[in-house]
Design a protein around this nucleic acid. Structure first.
Ligand SMILES: [Mn+2]
Ligand SMILES: [Mn+2]
Ligand SMILES: [Zn+2]
Ligand SMILES: [Zn+2]
Lengths: 140, 140
DNA sequence: GAGCCTATCGCGAAGCGTCGCAATAAGGTG
DNA sequence: CACCTTATTGCGACGCTTCGCGATAGGCTC
């Protein structure tokens, strides 16, 4: 199913702004912010407003084309939904990020399914804590 | 060690605003917002500004008296640091919250320690996903 | 208590994100 | 193509949170 078909089937409309936002997310390497996306879109369509970017990210997320992740308490990060899944560990001491491989995520997800019949999205928010380096150097 | 001692030892100062913020958090039942706290403080000290509340919550968190949690993407929730630890599952469909018991948290934490030597704080951010009720009713 | 140093305060501004509103335009009908 | 319905847009305002600044006041010394 093409983008146009999926959008029409959902009752949404295919606007230039929407296409440009999707393009920007798909071209991006990793985890871009809404402002990153807005900047890319403005290169081709300078009049776009911030709320249009946010609303289109939300619409494209509903359609399953993009997703967002929270790496820190501040800015939401966006990426294409078909990129390989992984979680994030963020150190509250040094700020360093580590990717969590899907098997570890799956093992944790299984436990939550068993105990709570809850289907978790463990990639949605980073897990904060203390990384190996900061843990090995407790002083300082 | 009393509050005054802990504060002085850290080079911080014991202001009326700081005491009132701590009081408000300690009196609160569960997971209060900064605005909840500000409202309580204003009852005794109306001139307090929002940034003073935020800065004192941060200072009291450094001292180990309070902590914060993210239940949704919006508002940060605060509570006393000595309350019983637990995680949160939040359903992205119905918004319902479930508490995760410490044993389940500990089992997941152990895995992250083994695989990544990362000491996680699994209570810091809620885990989003689909709850048992919304999962059992896939239509609608 | 007077005087000093500086942590903290209140305030205004700014950043991220959401919402309401009037204007625009996408998409369907004839 | 003319016309209609309404999803979407740009804009301004607002909520939550952080930051910089000059004023205030906590804590120490004499
Ligand atoms: Mn946080
Ligand atoms: Mn989110
Ligand atoms: Zn670290
Ligand atoms: Zn639910």
């Amino acid at each position: 199913m093409t983008l146009a078909d999926a959008i029409h089937a959902s009752g949404k409309r295919l606007t230039l702004q929407r296409q440009l936002v999707l393009d920007a997310v798909q071209r991006a390497r990793h985890h871009v912010t809404a402002e990153d996306i807005a900047r890319r879109v403005r290169a081709k369509y300078p009049r776009i407003g911030p709320s249009t970017v946010y609303r289109n990210l939300e619409a494209l997320e509903e359609l399953g084309y993009v997703t967002h992740t929270h790496l820190d308490d501040r800015v939401t990060r966006w990426h294409r939904a078909d990129s390989h899944p992984h979680g994030h560990l963020v150190c509250r001491s040094c700020g360093g990020e580590t990717e969590v491989r899907p098997p570890a995520l799956e093992a944790m997800a299984r436990r939550l399914r068993e105990l709570y019949r809850f289907e978790p999205d463990l990639a949605h928010s980073a897990i904060v804590g203390i990384c190996r380096r900061c843990r090995d150097v407790p002083s300082q």
